[in-house]
Design a protein around this nucleic acid. Structure first.
Lengths: 184, 184
DNA sequence: CGGTGGAGTTCAGTCATTGAACCACATAGT
DNA sequence: ACTATGTGGTTCAATGACTGAACTCCACCG
């Protein structure tokens, strides 16, 4: 919500935060960033967001330093990646998703997170029950839960997330290595 | 954001949660609920939200069971209070406010929270450094921080919050007791 | 009976979002 | 060189949401 005229006359950090991440689609774009989505076309296909709105949101997020717009060395391609500010939004994305799982997912969890370093599923507070710490997003693996509905979307992001556990923040579609695994 | 047509084709708990709390103004209304605001007129005066939108939001929040609409026994007055579902939104409200404090409040914290049972200021993760636990909102006191700007608003909610520490979730304007403190 | 305060509703104007179409640039193929 | 394709956008009319002011309804007060 960049909101009509914004929340300018609120003396409140929550209102300030909402001016940055409170608009329609913004938090879903950021969720995709945590999942490892980086390309304009992937956000577009995965979210079904109108191109104009996506362009606006990415521009606004880059302007406040939550994501960085990073043109690739070759071609017209651009990567959008989270900055330090953006990474710090993880508790917000996570707590919203957890609330949705707890109260709005009667069919069971759609997505499950586990601690990459010990393999334990993390608890509802975001902490790893085995380690007793709250792992940063880079240390989490995401995988499908029993409540996931495979019939809703079939863009390449959904397919990649369905195909198996994925480590947050790592590129979902890394460029193929110059030296292929089976040799040059 | 009830959002155009909603996020219906997202297989994601975050999207579901945003359909409930993602619309403009909704999280600010909920923040006020945690602060102890309960009356239509107080939300209106404190937030500067249009009456029609406030009525819509409260109706929607009541419909999904996040707040309860509770007519007072006397008069036309109505109280809006958080349900169990609503109380469970505290991590979201808190983490958004903390992110705003960390990244968007160069003048210093606007609001500070302390653990009511031990008096310690709580940390940025929401945990009490002394007790090692994450206190529920009912165990927190809120008070002004150095970054607060007293010139922005002067409705009775702002005045009450400025006047001293206040325990979250307790009514900011309780009905005067039938037997006054100094006797009947 | 008139006045006041709380809790809304109604409504015209404004602003944001949507979806489809269009554009620009770079590479790949022929 | 010419065309096709992929990527990352911009433009624009139509639709929907939000805003602000005015109005309503009801309960109590004097």
């Amino acid at each position: 919500m960049a909101l009509g005229r914004g929340y300018a006359d609120q003396d409140c950090s929550l209102a300030r935060a909402l001016e940055v991440v409170g608009e329609r689609w913004t938090l879903l774009v950021l969720r995709d960033c945590f999942y490892g989505v980086r390309r304009f076309g992937d956000f577009h296909a995965h979210l079904g967001i109108p191109r104009a709105v996506l362009a606006d949101r990415l521009k606004a997020l880059a302007a406040v330093g939550v994501v960085e717009r990073r043109p690739r060395t070759t071609g017209v391609e651009v990567d959008y990646v989270l900055t330090e500010r953006g990474l710090d939004l993880w508790p917000i994305v996570f707590s919203l998703a957890q609330w949705g799982e707890r109260w709005l997912a009667p069919e069971g969890s759609r997505r499950l997170f586990s601690h990459a370093v010990c393999g334990t599923d993390i608890g509802s507070g975001g902490a790893c029950p085995a380690c007793g710490t709250v792992p940063p997003p880079a240390d989490l693996l995401i995988r499908q839960g029993p409540g996931a509905d495979a019939t809703l979307r079939d863009d390449r992001v959904s397919t990649a997330l369905r195909s198996g556990p994925h480590r947050l923040l790592t590129d979902l579609f890394p460029a193929p290595a110059h030296t292929a695994p089976s040799g040059p």
